[in-house]
Simulated scan of single mutants.
Amino acid sequence: MKLWLNGKPSTPSDIMHQCMIREEEEYMRDFVSDDDDHIIGIGFDYIKKKEV
């Protein structure tokens, strides 16, 4: 399974490290599937919170 962090190929430890550093922030998961709807990758994209 392929993993991406902010659009770049990544490792599970890189993703864990970034999520722990930015625990006040949020990441959106993006599941990537093939033509048969099998999940082949997961992307983690940093989401900036909008200040109101």
Rank of each mutant, 00 (worst) to 15 (best):
M1E: 13
M1N: 04
L3K: 01
L3C: 06
W4N: 03
L5D: 01
L5V: 04
N6Q: 05
G7D: 03
K8C: 04
K8A: 10
K8W: 01
P9A: 15
S10L: 12
S10Q: 09
T11M: 08
P12C: 08
S13Y: 11
S13G: 06
S13A: 15
S13I: 13
D14T: 11
I15Q: 09
M16Q: 14
H17Y: 15
H17G: 00
C19V: 14
I21Y: 15
I21N: 08
I21R: 15
R22F: 07
R22L: 11
R22W: 08
E23G: 12
E23A: 15
E24Q: 13
E25N: 11
E25M: 10
E25D: 13
Y27F: 15
M28V: 09
R29Y: 01
R29M: 10
D30S: 05
D30V: 03
V32C: 03
S33I: 14
S33T: 15
D34H: 06
D34L: 06
D34K: 02
D35V: 04
D35H: 05
D35N: 09
D35R: 05
D36Q: 12
H38R: 10
I39D: 11
I39W: 01
I39Y: 03
I40D: 01
G41K: 02
G41F: 04
I42K: 00
G43D: 05
G43S: 10
G43L: 02
F44Y: 14
F44K: 02
Y46K: 03
Y46F: 11
I47P: 00
I47H: 02
K48C: 00
K48P: 00
K48A: 00
K49R: 06
K50C: 00
K50H: 02
K50D: 04
K50L: 07
K50Y: 09
E51D: 14
E51V: 14
V52A: 04
V52T: 08
